[in-house]
Design a protein around this nucleic acid. Sequence first.
RNA 1: GGGCGAAUAGCUCAGCUGGUUAGAGCACCUGUCUUACACACAGGGGGUCGGGGGUUCGAAUCCCUCUUCGCCCACCA
Length: 950
Amino acid sequence: MTPTDGTPTSQSPAPTPAPDELPTTYRAADVESALYARWQAAGTDVAHAERVTRMGGGRDPYTIVMPPPNVTAILHVGHGLNNTVQDVLIRWRRMAGDEALWLPGTDHAGIATQNVVEKQLAAEGSSRSALGREAFVARTAQFVETTGGQILQQLKSIGASADWSRTAYTLTEPMSAAVTEAFVRLFEDGLVYRGHRVIHWCPRCMTSLSDEEAEFNETQGAMYHIRYRLADDPSQSITVATTRPETLLGDVAVAVNPTDERYAAFVGRQLTLPINGVHIPVIADDYTDAAFGTGAVKITPAHDPNDFEVGKRHALSAPIIMDAEARMNGMGDDAHRVPPELRGVDRFEARERIVNMLRDQGALVKVEAHQHSVRHCYRCDTVVEPRLSDQWFVKMAPLAAPALAAVRTGRIRILPERWEAVYINWLEGIRDWNISRQLWWGHRVPVYYCDSCGAAPKASRTTITTCPDCGAPARQDEDVLDTWFSSWLWPMSTLGWPNMESSDLKAFYPGDVLVTAPEILFFWVSRMIMSGCYFMGDAPYHTVYLHGTVRDMQHRKMSKSLGNGIDPMDVVQLYGADALRWTMVAGMGLGVDVLLDPTDLEKSFAPGRNFLTKLWNIGRFLLTKVGTEPVQPLSAIATESLTIADRWILDRLDAAIGEANSALGPVRPGTGGCWTEAERTAGMRLDAYADAGRRFVWNELADWYLETVKPRLAAGGADAEVARAVLVHCFDGALRVLQPVIPFITETLWAKLPAISDGSARGTEFLTTSAWPAARPARAEGGDAFELVRNAVLGIRQIRNEYKVKPGKSVAVTLLPSAADAAPAPLLAETIGALTRATVTIRGTEGSPAAAGGASAQQVLTGGTEVVIALSELLEAESAEDTAKECARLRSELDQTQKILDGVRAKLSNESFTSRAKPEVVDGARAQERDLAQKVDALTRKIEALCGTR
RNA sequence: GGGCGAAUAGCUCAGCUGGUUAGAGCACCUGUCUUACACACAGGGGGUCGGGGGUUCGAAUCCCUCUUCGCCCACCA
């Protein structure tokens, strides 16, 4: 954690605020945990299956299953981002009237957890083998029991509104039953099989890995060229090239391309392996690329997947020359292949020694630098060793087909869209999935063997202790299943599958959105889709939302080892959960990385903290000015009594609601259950949604409406009542829109809003369970006139600033509106004046600039309205210098304006443009021409007045 | 080696099917403690939209090409 100097929010001891008195800055710590507890007590986050339409209820279901974090994990910002996105969606839909279920849980994380416990044991001078299987599993379960699930508590402190009553864990009884059911069913369907082949083996974790778990790393290695001499004529030889010379002890052949004339004479003859002297044949196989390396490949079937295939084609043996810990060791009949001095030597040590031995024997032709990809264990980063063994595999092609179709037909969309291509590409070339692991922590493979009668292995839903064929004791498979084999069932198993009568399953499957990071698209996302299609006959969700990664300022992924992480709990403590949530959501484009500076939390989370303080102060102002007396419902206020400002802000609120809705987008695909092309990429712009709320509350409500309403409230009377009603309505709407991102502060402020006088109240006790706002059915016309006020105020401020008029000084302003219908002039003038410390006179269009009298500063606003202020008002003592400067400025402005005008006129006189461009574009250009012409005119007159004609 | 994506203000990014003077946040500069907020308010500067070519009346937007980054996949020993 980075100390930040003087952060009042967290460091000053909170003085207990008098009741009804709000401190000037929002103190998250004062409200968040207590409020969360109140939500929990009220059960605001619990979903009810019977309320869902699929169960005869009245609400659409909206389901998100949480990507289960590792049970022993500690919350990091990545989790924070992931869960905040889900929480925003869930809270939005909950307010919108859906039966929203966010299903949380944790994953037993086979390898990861086992590694942690093994490390503990090592520190105690023990090991898993010393402990034995049963004790080790008990110990690990104990470890999970005491330290696990912490992360779920942490999620609560960032405001996650998951349904904790349904919290799941992959190693519980029901989840295990689901795993067994899935395995057995696939087994019965012929989609699970036992395979004897070369797989990725982690010699540190002592288990096999799937293709996805063995990650590529570009590594600078070496290519060793080694000479193998002919057995019957040592003067002749073939040179092979390899990156792993130690494997030569297991070579059974050298392969050359059948068309390679260089080696044609060698095919069929025997070579002598250096070091162990074993004789191996030269074979011809298409696998060898004559153009690569030396054009001759050593074949080591037991230690290379390709070589294994070549070996099978040529009926060659597959001697194993390394043990499970990747030490050199020959097995059984092949023991002689590893010379005594190399036995038990680690593979990398052996590599060096063998290279030296080859050099001594003159068999090492050359060593060249070679950059290549080496696979590493995704859990411990150890270099993976290809190893021949028996493993359980899932046949993937039949599962992949419906999963491909789901995306192709639009049943599922993946956002950002570009990942769809990646998904399709992977599924099209999918390979079988190795699901067995030589670990102890996980779901045991539900397959049983009989050693006495030799019956075929049986997969069983229930434990088999005696062989059904001969009655001898049966033996269960020692291996456990890949962690991801339980994860891929998660969207179903957490809802009660395989019990098809489970009300949760019926009500909430299929779900809606999966929110996760692109890294686990293959590990998890696509497999869930496959299992959903296979076991449930339908995909588990319609939208896959892949968010970016949280990175530091050098764009490095935050990681423990780099020490560049941010602890979300620190942020919560300093600025509150809302600030954390806001900063992440507002700073996050679709699929775009979030950049945060771990060395400066103050700077990183300023956007969130600043916005919260602003919102808090808007609330303070509003609540103190409006008071606690009930306000009239908006519906009770006659349209005529609404001022232009009222009409305008009500329009703006409706617009903000509309923008939030379209940013969040279509909730689910329309009829037919498939996304249309237009819908497919729409919505899920959480940053745009947050921005719509921020803009309304800050740039419209606070910056403009609040300022205009001050005098009205002070004046009291009927108009003040109108203002109060509008104010409360708008703030209420803003809080509703913002609740999903910043639930704590909005709930706190909302609770303090005055009641509605007709007793209609606001529906619920909590904002979080209140209704998502809707635009008014009918708007009151005339709010647009407020744009004149805004433009005039901006114009006056600009002029005042240019002339450096002291903020306290008031000036006389003449306004010449372009449109004759310019609404109630006196009221507008008063409003403008109040906002700019000016005495404003509004003249009709007949008023001429000359009428403003003498030399003046003028500004033409959008729409053609002119703001005129006499120079005598602006210049304390008008100096020749000032005048000259102003003249120069005006002339250059005139030039520029004229240039733009010429351009627009040229465009307008071009028939191709007027006939082909869209009508509204042409109209826009015409309006622009009018405005520009007026501006040129005004500038010309101004220059005449101030600088004299030239 | 294959595939995909990106290049717009100092930084992070918006700019929809080509059409007003290319926007936002942060950063920067100037002024202001204006009785909700200095975690604020007001004003301002800053971009030949990666280079080159093409299509078009018109290109940040479409096409080609080059350059530079990033991501995913891949059994080249």
